[in-house]
Amino acid sequence: MAYIQVEEGIPGIRSLFQFNPETGGPLCDLAQALLRGPSPLSAAERELIAAYVSHRNGCMFCMNSHAMAARCLLGDQQHIVDEILIEQNTSALSAKMKSLLLIAGKVQVNGKSVKAEDIEMARNAGAGDADIHDTVLIAASFSMFNRYVDGLNTLTPSGRWAYEEMGKRMSEKGYQL
């Protein structure tokens, strides 16, 4: 049971968008701009960063839904999602994506734990300002989304099928109220 009176049966953040559409609007716009807007990172790479941060925050709703969106976007490469989230094996990733996930992991802990040498490592692996910016803001945004979803104890479906439908919709239609 969510901590506030939301409509029964609506999962996760969607129940909160329905509870307060006024804040739901800009929250969707932010997700859309960050995960689907112009970026040197692919939509799949950005979904992977979102799923990784959600995993580290223990937010099952966000982790499962964004992991599923990443799988849909990755197609026959989708095995890397489980390799990263479950096996913590990043060998299939480029050096650049490895260094960006390291930065995202530090942002998840606290902004101040990102050090100049982390940024330098990403730059040496080919990351530019936009890659670094987008990684930090995605990680920061999911530090918000995860807390919003879990802080109000919203409904977290346990069946895989619920996320399959969500992930498909997110990969095809993006984020809108």
Partner: peptide
Amino acid sequence: IHDSVLIAALFCLYNRYVDGLG
């Protein structure tokens, strides 16, 4: 309660954005 949680969550974004980019 909703607004308090979302304000707190939003500043977890801001704080990380500001400090994470030094």
